[in-house]
Amino acid sequence: MLLDIAVLKEIFSVDCVYVGNKSLTFNGINTVYDAVEGQIAWIKPNVKNNAEILSNTNASCIICNEETFNLGNSEKQRLYVISKDPKLEYFKVLKHIRNSTNKKPLSAIHETAIVDKNCIIGKNVTIGAYSVIGSCTIGDNTQIGEFVKIFDSVTIGANVLIRENVSIGGEGFGFYTHSDGTVEHIPHIGSVKIGNNVQIFPFANIDRGTLGSTEIGNGSVIDHYVHVGHNSKIGESTIVCANSVLAGGSKINNRCFIGVNTLLKEKCEIGSDSITGIGAVVVKNIPDSEVWVGNPAKFLKKNEK
């Protein structure tokens, strides 16, 4: 695939500025350290040795901010794309290349997938091999990977990406201990509601509500091996990192970042714009815009955005 300045202008933000050799074409993307002639790279702002990085890289196209560009560009023939957010523009190129080289047929349901006759499927939905889909609703442009299990009473929004080996809507972990010590499972007859533009990575598990629903808000990301217990709520644009556990009835609000291996006690709540560190064990509510770390998790500082 060859990219020229005309294609880049379609990909990048309208306020980007282009300086240098505008006749070049580019055949790939790489890190600024490993890039060779013909490739695109980006430079992270505010790094003290950026002048050296800029001088030594062999990339033919550099995405950087104005401050980095003003450090002094080398005599090498290249194109500079000056942006307020170079990392974002770099990701846009990655997305363009992936989408151009990994096109999948629209509305493709693999022949080995099992889909309930009462399932409501939107437009341009793909369902991967050996997935089992119950009586649920799937929104437009949603992609479901291989070996996914989606139970009844699940509603999935539009533009959702569910990767392989995910389970959504199964029975929750709730039990009643009788006076004689015997343990009986409590039936879970609720639902799961997943918003638009959600991404769910492999081996995540989302239980349905006992009564009511387990919910994931628009634009949130659920990483590998995350467990979302029954009746838990995750707000919008929240990232939950790998191996984290949300016990039943817990709640994470909007725009949170939940660090790897975070454990959230049942019915605890994390306020909007808050962060938990790696391995945090949350046993009480966290207010908005705070950073908590440790076991048990304790306040570290305010999250100054």
Rank of each mutant, 00 (worst) to 15 (best):
F203V: 08
K284F: 01
E215F: 00
I138G: 05
V81A: 12
C241K: 04
E171F: 07
V132E: 08
L8D: 00
E164V: 02
S167P: 00
F69W: 03
N253E: 12
V17I: 12
A242S: 14
I162K: 09
W292H: 08
I162F: 01
G28F: 09
L88G: 03
F175P: 00
V32N: 10
G170V: 01
D15F: 10
S289Q: 11
H224G: 06
V183C: 06
P287A: 05
N30Q: 11
E236L: 02
K104Y: 13
G249D: 02
L71F: 06
T112I: 07
A113G: 08
K9L: 05
Y176T: 14
V260L: 14
G249T: 01
L54R: 06
I239R: 08
T126S: 15
T137N: 12
K302E: 12
I286T: 07
H185I: 09
V154A: 04
I120S: 13
V183I: 15
T137L: 10
K193D: 03
G294F: 10
R98N: 14
K92N: 10
L264F: 05
H185R: 15
T155F: 04
N65R: 08
V36C: 08
L211Q: 04
I162M: 05
R98S: 14
I162S: 08
K87A: 09
V260R: 03
A247H: 01
P287H: 06
T137A: 14
S191L: 00
I168Q: 03
Q77I: 15
K117Y: 00
D34A: 11
R208E: 11
P187I: 11
C64Q: 09
K123T: 13
E304R: 14
T262W: 05
V192N: 11
Q39T: 09
N21A: 15
G38F: 06
K267Y: 12
S244A: 15
T57W: 07
L79P: 00
G294M: 13
A41Q: 11
T126G: 06
S23K: 15
K302R: 14
G157V: 01
E304M: 13
L264Q: 06
I186V: 11
K193I: 12
V221I: 14
A35L: 05
N243T: 10
K302A: 14
S272K: 15
N124M: 07
K301S: 15
E266T: 01
V283N: 09
A158D: 14
N49H: 12
N46G: 00
N58Q: 15
D34F: 01
V221R: 13
K305R: 15
S274K: 03
N303V: 12
Y33C: 03
T137F: 04
I97E: 00
I53G: 06
L71W: 01
S274H: 08
S107A: 15
N58S: 12
G229Y: 00
S135Y: 05
E10C: 07
S100A: 14
I43N: 13
F69M: 07
L300W: 02
E164W: 01
V293S: 13
N295F: 01
N303W: 06
K9Q: 14
